[in-house]
Simulated assay, not measured.
Amino acid sequence: MEHLINNRVKNIEISGIRKFFNMVAHVEDMISLTIGQPDFQTPEHVKEAGKQAIDLNFTTYTHNAGLIELRQAAADFYKKKYHIEYSAEHETIITVGASEAIDITFRTILDEGCEVILPGPVYPGYEPIIKLCGATPIYADIRNTDFRMTAELIESLITEKTRCIVLPYPSNPTGVSLTEPELQEIANLLIDKDIFVLADEIYSELVYEQQHVSIAQFLKEKTIVINGLSKSHSMTGWRIGMLFAPEYLTKHILKVHQYNVTCATSISQMAALEALTNGVDDALPMKDEYAIRRDYVFKRLQSMGLEVIKPEGAFYFFIKIPAINITSFDFCMDLVNEAKLAVVPGSAFSEFGEGYFRLSYAYSMDTLKEGLDRLEGYLLSIK
């Protein structure tokens, strides 16, 4: 009966990140620097709010868009942090993680045959959904612009079929984040064009030397902003995302969300309310620790002679593989077999990631030190 399965589903692949992680998970004595899972625990006061919600039997459906108190807290969060005002009632939707927010956005704005421009390399969660919508992903090769999406690159790829530009910054896998002038230039390009922007800002609270800037500051009427609590509050398993957009968009996105999941989990929403009120700055100590780890890893990688850009946000390095005739997948498998170290092949992040590998520093300093020692030993062995 498999021949009856939707061809679009059959033609997409499991995430290359997860595929590689699953392949090596069974290897004994493995150091894994693969997954973007914060090694901090969910803050205690947030966990207590979730426990209290269970004890109070808050186990019913909520408004499809989420508790109004939580939507207000989310809107207040964006106003305080990033200086953008959204209506809690009409322009804010609480989703089941940022992943669901991406899904319902694309399913709302994409038609058969239209195109979506996105940077390459990029997080692999966009392309499959674009294809499931019958649309076509168009990659901007950002390898020669220090992994920065530019107005010039976007302009060169715009056609009459272009429906959306994806701006995922700070970036997974590169750690790059766009500056205010760069975003202003992109906004100026798009201001008179009927093209949406999907701004995936899930790492917005993990930006180091500079302040995170959202393109919605300049292009609010065309932008769907996606964020969540997975990275900022180490709440990956709670599955709470936030979607902000003008009412003319959210009233349609909400329909897809309603028939998709009804609403985000009530218990998680109560924990999220605590996170966005009493825990509004919970990410700050985590960010400080990530910055220390980033600087340590950067120095180690430089000392190994590896070509790498210092991340401005998130918690990843995207590292060029030394000049040896090998694919990123084979390089990473050899690293597993010879050094018991797991990283992610760059090919998991589109064809434009080939020749690189991603290393996550969302791990303890002890784990990072051991992992980098193994990487250094491996590189010396293949010289």
Rank of each mutant, 00 (worst) to 15 (best):
L4T: 14
I17A: 09
E28F: 09
L33E: 01
T34L: 04
E44Y: 15
E44P: 00
K51A: 09
A53S: 11
I54L: 15
A65Y: 02
A75Y: 01
D76S: 11
K80A: 14
K81N: 13
H83M: 07
I84M: 08
I94P: 00
A98P: 05
R107T: 06
L110S: 04
L110H: 07
G113Q: 03
P121C: 07
V122Q: 04
E127C: 13
I130Q: 03
P137V: 10
N144A: 11
D146M: 10
F147I: 05
T150A: 08
L153Y: 03
E160M: 07
K161N: 13
C164K: 02
C164Q: 02
I165D: 04
I165N: 04
P170R: 08
P173T: 07
P173I: 07
T179N: 05
N188A: 15
D192I: 06
V197Y: 05
I202L: 12
E205L: 03
V207E: 02
E209H: 13
S214W: 05
Q217W: 02
K220S: 06
E221P: 00
H233I: 01
Y248E: 07
C263K: 01
A264V: 06
S268Y: 03
N278V: 00
D281A: 09
D282K: 00
L284N: 09
I292G: 02
F298M: 11
R300I: 10
Q302Y: 06
M304H: 05
L306I: 04
K310N: 14
K320R: 14
F329N: 10
V336P: 05
P345L: 08
A348K: 05
F349Q: 08
G355Q: 15
Y356I: 04
R358Q: 15
T367P: 04
K369M: 13
K369V: 13
L380T: 14
